[in-house]
Design a protein around this nucleic acid. Structure first.
Ligand code: ZN
Ligand code: ZN
Ligand code: ZN
Ligand code: ZN
Lengths: 163, 163
DNA sequence: AAGGATGAGTTATATAATAACGTCCCTCAC
DNA sequence: GTGAGGGACGTTATTATATAACTCATCCTT
């Protein structure tokens, strides 16, 4: 196995992923003076349950089940809005789904490689991608406010599996 | 006015845009041996009515009105699927909307600059963007099947207007 | 004319997201 | 204290986007 592969694509202690993500979220929210309430934290935890994007209604189903009672769409969407606003998750428009941000501490754009087979979404941190996008925008005098890059294809594992 | 700006951002004879797009579509479909039926052609024409992405239900509303009888969603979505499949339009996932392809004759990815204010969508043809995306994908052994780049911001005109 | 493929009409439903309003609870000025 | 204000969340209803399943008409092909 290629040791340089992103963690999302490799066998790893995923409990540690979740734990670190939640700790980072706690730290970030306290630093920002915003409240990571129990509900918001639980939604973030659910999103982090895997490296695959999760739909709002999937989250809703889990909450409804474990809460015994209700849980309506606005409950989930408000939590998601909070998490998005504080850069703790990203929204993948091509999937209508959400995924935990792997480096929430610094501002960055949403660049993902999404496996068509196993649905793993790999967050890419490539300044070169942003640089070329900025160059193209500058050429037509366009002022960038937000970039969204979603690439679909096959991750390393699924390529190997289908060989 | 900057003469190097993309046509979508400038004053121009838009009837010509539409006319050329429909002619190109006729040519392409006949070359491919597929049928650009009246309905499909009409939907393409509606999408080309501006350089702003158009929603499926906007198309549906127009068709319903002019047809007298109510057109139903599948009618529109089937036409859209055909147009997408033959690369005559692109789908903008971040807007759930569709826009005419400016160079359908050769295969290419979906790269757009979308103005937050006037909603104009500028199709970008930048091999450099694809190159950097490919480099990032190769670094993690990911095989690309399709790229989606949607950048939101302010087009040149709207920057000038809000100054 | 029979058979098969394609395009499109029709009805119903699935999936995703938001609007509008109410309640609880905490905090802060008075 | 108390009550005004605001944030978080519950609740109900609705809007927006997309697809399933079935039907029929048309047009080739044989
Ligand atoms: Zn993990
Ligand atoms: Zn991130
Ligand atoms: Zn034009
Ligand atoms: Zn195009």
């Amino acid at each position: 196995m290629n040791p340089s592969l992103p963690i999302a694509c490799t066998e790893h202690d995923h409990n540690l992923c979740v734990h670190q993500a939640l700790q980072a979220a706690d730290a970030l929210c306290s630093r920002q003076g915003v409240r990571l309430t129990a509900l918001r934290r639980r939604v973030l935890e659910l999103i982090w349950q895997s490296h695959k994007p999760l739909g709002a209604y999937d989250i809703l189903a889990v909450l409804s089940q474990e809460d015994g009672r209700r849980a309506a769409p606005p409950t989930v969407y408000r939590a998601l809005d909070f998490l998005l606003g504080n850069h703790l998750i990203h929204r993948l428009a091509s999937l209508n789904a959400f995924i935990g941000c792997t480096h929430p501490a610094h501002a960055h754009q949403s660049h993902f490689l999404i496996c068509r087979v196993c649905h793993t979404a790999i967050e890419v941190d490539s300044p070169a991608i942003s640089a070329t996008i900025h160059a193209a925008a500058e050429a037509v005098d366009f002022r960038i406010e937000g970039e969204m890059v979603e690439v679909v294809g096959l991750c390393a594992q699924c390529q190997a599996a289908t060989k």
